[in-house]
């Protein structure tokens, strides 16, 4: 079984970046996570995760234009790389495979 070098929170962040497509930067990612999952997280945690993912090669970033909403400071937009995409796929595939193998008996037993 291959191991993907990625943590649970990182996976969420990576997914959100993929969802936001062209508009993924610190604040938007944080808000999207809040909206989608209801998790309250600090902006610094998001930054840290984004940086980690970038250094692992799953994300790449570029600096955008200045906007008034942040006092003239520029945004750093993130986009998912091919490697990131593949990792997400691999994770999903692995999960699905595992899910599929759960015998019905077991499911009944735990009451599902």
């Amino acid at each position: 079984m291959t191991r993907t070098n990625i943590g649970e929170f990182e996976e969420v962040v990576l997914l959100i970046v993929a969802i936001l497509h062209e508009n993924a930067y610190g604040v938007s990612v944080m808000e999207e996570i809040e909206n989608q999952t209801g998790r309250k997280i600090n902006i610094s945690a998001v930054h840290s995760a984004l940086d980690r993912l970038e250094s692992k090669g799953f994300l790449k970033s570029e600096v955008g234009g200045a906007t008034a909403e942040r006092g003239g400071r520029r945004k750093r937009f993130f986009r998912i790389t091919v490697a990131g995409q593949r990792t997400l796929d691999a994770i999903r595939e692995q999960r699905n495979r595992l899910h599929d193998q759960i015998p019905n008996l077991g499911l009944k037993y735990v009451g599902i």
Binding site: G26, V27, I43, V63, E69, R70, R73, R74, K75
Partner: peptide, 16 residues
């Protein structure tokens, strides 16, 4: 290197 982006995000959140 990281200051502008961090400061920007912090400001954006602050205004919101």
């Amino acid at each position: 290197r990281a200051l502008e982006i961090i400061e920007g995000d912090a400001y954006e959140l602050f205004y919101k």
